[in-house]
Computed example of a mutant assay.
Amino acid sequence: MKSCVIYRTDKEYKIVTESETDTGLFISDTPVYILPLAISDEILKDKIINCLENSKTGVKMPETREKFSKWQKEQLANLQEKNFSSLYKKSKSCLVRIESGQLIIYPYECLDVKKGLTIIDDKVVHFNYLKGVELIATQEIIKVLNSGDVPV
């Protein structure tokens, strides 16, 4: 399975690679891209695909609280954020996965910043993952991230 998360703030897109850990959980990984909202659909597609291609399995989960804290600080620095709570509050986001021949877009919402993001089940979008579907899927991702107001 390949995975990434895309955040849309009022100024930019933040695209984060996700990798599956040795425990089965997904964690943020690199590359991370921060792009202006005025970016072309084609460039946005290329960055999303690059993140998906760099998604790995079997990544070692930080084992101690200290290692997890260090990892978290690195991820926040990559995102140019102070904490995840503020990112969740000020952005719209979605999870993008390639699994079982499908490219799936899972829109997120933040119901409670302490609990993180929740998938909006009735808004999930599926595509058969065939050559050439990437641009159409990217345009759907843009629609998902543009729906409703972006929190400020």
Rank of each mutant, 00 (worst) to 15 (best):
S19C: 04
R97G: 00
K92S: 08
I49F: 00
E63Q: 12
I104W: 05
T9H: 08
S40C: 09
L44N: 08
K11C: 06
R97V: 08
L87R: 09
L130Y: 03
E12A: 12
I34Y: 10
T23S: 15
K73H: 08
N54F: 03
K67L: 11
P107G: 04
K82A: 15
V124Y: 06
I27H: 05
Q80L: 13
I105F: 01
F68Q: 06
Q80C: 08
N83M: 12
L103G: 02
G116V: 05
W71P: 05
N83Y: 10
I15D: 00
K114N: 15
E12N: 12
Q75V: 14
D41W: 08
F68A: 09
Y129F: 14
L35E: 15
K45G: 00
N54C: 13
D29T: 06
K82I: 14
I105M: 05
K11I: 02
K90L: 07
K70H: 07
V16Q: 08
K82M: 10
I6S: 02
K70G: 00
L44K: 09
R8E: 07
K47A: 04
F68T: 01
I27E: 03
K73V: 07
R8Q: 13
R65S: 15
V133A: 04
Y106M: 09
S55Q: 04
E20W: 10
K123E: 14
Y33F: 15
K89P: 00
R97D: 03
Q72C: 09
L87N: 05
E66A: 09
S100M: 07
I27S: 09
I48E: 01
Q80T: 06
K90E: 08
G58E: 02
K123D: 08
R97E: 03
G58W: 11
V32P: 02
G58A: 07
K131E: 15
K82H: 10
L25S: 14
D46Y: 02
C51R: 02
Y108G: 01
L117V: 07
D46K: 14
K114M: 11
D121M: 06
I119M: 03
I119A: 04
C94D: 05
C94Y: 02
Q75I: 12
D22C: 12
K60P: 00
I49A: 01
D122A: 01
E53F: 04
N128M: 03
E63Y: 13
R8C: 04
P62T: 10
Q80Y: 14
V124Q: 04
N78M: 12
D10Q: 11
I49E: 02
K56M: 12
G24H: 13
L52N: 02
V59P: 02
V113P: 10
K73T: 07
I48N: 02
S69A: 14
L44T: 11
V133E: 07
V96L: 10
N83D: 15
K115V: 07
S100A: 08
K90A: 04
R8N: 06
Y13V: 00
I49R: 00
G116K: 01
P31M: 06
E81L: 03
Y88W: 15
T21V: 09
T21H: 09
S19V: 05
Y33S: 10
S69P: 00
V124G: 06
K73I: 08
S86L: 09
Q72S: 13
Y33E: 09
